[in-house]
Design a protein around this nucleic acid. Structure first.
Lengths: 208, 208
DNA sequence: GCATGATTTAAACATGCGTTTAATCTAATT
DNA sequence: AATTAGATTAAACGCATGTTTAAATCATGC
């Protein structure tokens, strides 16, 4: 018993935990390797660089998340009437799928994504844009169909505001959740935050 | 002629330019002092530390912005009917006042504020909260009056989403503005971004 | 059971940061 | 003109980071 966990997985798990808690830049390789119980040099041996490790951590979730999201958007596309809020709600399905990667997969992934966007590291922006670009354009097209009363410029800015609200909610997430829990005396999960977020961004986008 | 500019002001100007362009953490004292044409050690001599320099840069704008904002909120308070969008629009007055500090004062201040909130440096969070806390609570109370249909929890989360959208818009600001200008063939200022932001956050907040 | 290639290890490397030091220069006062 | 307090300077300090090195260890196939 005590199935031996390969070094790479040990590193990925420790990195994921620390990245999602503190952010990419704020987490050092020394913290990661200590947490993982492996040698400092093994990150560069197995992954090549910190950048590559970050991408590997993201990849574990993206390969699950992306196809399911794309599938959901295709389903939405086939419907005759297209409502904004319904479109956003479809994000919940690929998100829920991430529990298969990790019990707290959805929470972790959203926080990672938040840091990926808020830390303006070029390589990460390029990477996520590369991974997300197509799907985001798909989403944009559908949102335009659902909101024909908005012109290109309004749509452009509002989409980025939405992104900002979502990212900020995740990055400030744990601190905010703790405040909310203390304030309202009830447990709050990342999923609950999403449930608050969806009507907000829908209302903001649809506003005349 | 060629009125001699004191070292402190040279440092503040250079720091402000670099901080608002790249963020606080991303800007080193060596960059600042080189840009200002002064010695590296003079920052610590005149300001004590980098932290203190950051606060000094913020202070030049806060001392102008805050009293005018508070004044506007007081005016809003006296009105019988309180509309969300009108409340947000009142931010434009203290913001416009910042042109007295610097021609691009509003743009610069908003970006600085964005970085102040997105970079989770404890001391900055504490500082801005200390400066802003009272006014933010004032705003929160007024928004509650304008939106009696929302419960405490909805209000809590939506306010933070709004903050996120605003912060993100400013931090990603220059990149987004450049994209928008290329896309729509017209000049875009930070003020224009605000004009797009206000209906979005108003709609999002009011949503049933 | 040994040879070989993959892995792990401790140590050093190179770089950049904020800060401090101590000497030098400047300008006003006596 | 000498003194003195303030301002500036070049250099170094101490620390943390990601990365690289080269030796030691491990595991696997013959």
């Amino acid at each position: 018993m005590a199935a031996r966990i390969p070094t790479q997985k040990k590193i990925l798990n420790a990195a994921e935990m620390l990245f999602s808690r503190d952010g990419f830049e704020q987490t050092s390789l020394r913290q990661i390797t200590q947490e993982a119980g492996v040698n400092l040099a093994s990150v560069n041996y197995h992954f090549g660089s910190k950048k590559a490790l970050i991408q590997a951590v993201m990849a574990r979730y993206l390969v699950v998340f992306m196809p399911v999201l794309e599938e959901q958007l295709k389903l939405a596309e086939q419907q005759s009437e297209l409502k904004t809020e319904e479109l956003f709600k479809r994000f919940k399905i690929p998100l829920a799928k991430l529990t298969e990667v990790n019990k707290h997969g959805p929470d972790i992934f959203l926080r990672l994504l938040g840091f990926a966007y808020s830390e303006i590291q070029g390589h990460l922006r390029k990477y996520t844009q590369q991974e997300f670009g197509e799907v985001l354009q798909h989403l944009m097209a559908l949102l335009k169909r659902a909101n024909p009363h908005l012109d290109e410029q309004q749509m452009f800015w509002r989409l980025h505001f939405i992104l900002g609200a979502a990212v900020f909610a995740q990055v400030s997430g744990q601190a905010l959740i703790e405040i909310a829990e203390a304030e309202f005396n009830q447990k709050v999960g990342a999923q609950d935050v999403i449930d608050h977020l969806i009507p907000f961004v829908s209302g903001g986008l649809e506003e005349a």
